[in-house]
Design a protein around this nucleic acid. Structure first.
Lengths: 211, 211
DNA sequence: ACCTGAACACCGTTCAAGT
DNA sequence: ACCTGAACACCGTTCAAGT
């Protein structure tokens, strides 16, 4: 399973990401990481301060996959692309959204925050509007994706956690909720509302003074 | 610590909430719940199928504290009040936001979803706009609060995780990020953007066809 | 019907000992 | 400098035995 190469912080982080991808965050243990690397558990602690330290690094690695703002693009398409690529990166690593509020941002995430704020600064918005926009975009990227991932993977674990819920629901007690679920079942999971709401936020910013 | 009253599912859930409030979700163990109730661990399993089952019930208990839609109110203030009271309930129980994507909704949460959808139905929006509105509001209530709670409690654990981050940040490398943090430090945590963004969403819905 | 002792298969982490 | 064995203080959960 593992050539006996020297242990590195980077190899530990990468092994952690591989296990989280396969077994989820709950299934990630230091012992499994060690097994994957062909070493003993305690060896890991020579390269990583603690499990939390490892998790923080794993998360920042995901932020490293966010697109940087493309140069020579006006603020709106720049923000749009960063948000979409961030959503994609977070979806590639399903375990990541759960960690976004757990640690102070690492270097990659700092760079991403800086790029978002720089784009907002270019929009010449009042300071408080720019601040609101920043948090609205951040919550949208992380929160919306978190919700979507949670729904999709729960559906996969058991073929039909969502189906079971849908069927257990009494349409007489919850008419609107039943109709809502029916709507989503008919439309399938293919439709993606992320970009739609993203554009609503950007519309709001533009209306608030950007140009 | 505990009169030797008969064990109930409700007493188990309430004990779980008390421990989560004190020690956080990570500090909640079945053994601690048992200790608080003055019984052995295994006794709990007579009233609760598993730890996950307990967590799902704890979460639904929080949704029980969401305001129901007040009767005879038009859709916009109704949605607004439900969102604000939901935010308050989730903030009262800091551990709750982390669980919102983990389980299918229990009865209290179903009632809340039904009430939100009913209010949206009254707005006479196109079906897809109503659907977008529902998810935008849901993500806002859970996601925004999750982020806010995460930031605030991380700041409390160590007097200054946020302060430390702020000071470790090189203003030359991250000028906008530094300014952003400075902005929040000056304004303090008292200002609350939740309602502001909430109104932006409601504005968007109103513009999209509600009246 | 409800409770519980013992046991199983796990955790993260420390520390002293090895090389 | 890096690795590791043994150990500590925990986990959730099963199962058979008690009342």
């Amino acid at each position: 399973m593992s050539t006996k190469r020297a242990l590195t912080r980077d190899r530990v982080v990468r092994a952690g990401m591989a296990i989280a991808a396969r077994d989820g965050l709950a299934g990630l243990s230091m012992r499994k990481v060690a097994a994957k690397l062909g070493c003993e558990v305690m060896s890991l602690y020579n390269h990583v301060r603690s499990k939390d330290d490892l998790l923080a690094d794993m998360l920042d690695e995901v932020y490293g996959e966010f697109d940087q703002s493309p140069p020579d693009t006006s603020w709106r398409p720049a923000l749009r692309q960063m948000a979409l690529s961030g959503r994609d990166a977070l979806r590639r690593h399903e375990w990541a959204t759960e960690l976004t509020t757990s640690f102070p941002p690492g270097p990659n995430r700092r760079r991403h925050m800086e790029a978002m704020l720089a784009a907002l600064a270019e929009a010449d918005l009042p300071e408080d509007v720019a601040d609101l926009g920043f948090h609205a975009l951040t919550v949208h990227i992380q929160g919306y994706t978190h919700q979507q991932v949670g729904f999709e993977t729960r559906s996969n674990e058991r073929k039909s956690a969502a189906e079971q819920f849908a069927e257990s629901l009494d349409a007489d007690d919850y008419p609107h909720l039943s109709a809502h679920i029916q709507y989503h079942r008919e439309r399938g999971h293919h439709h993606d509302d992320f970009a739609f709401v993203l554009d609503l936020i950007l519309d709001g910013l533009e209306r608030a003074g950007g140009q």
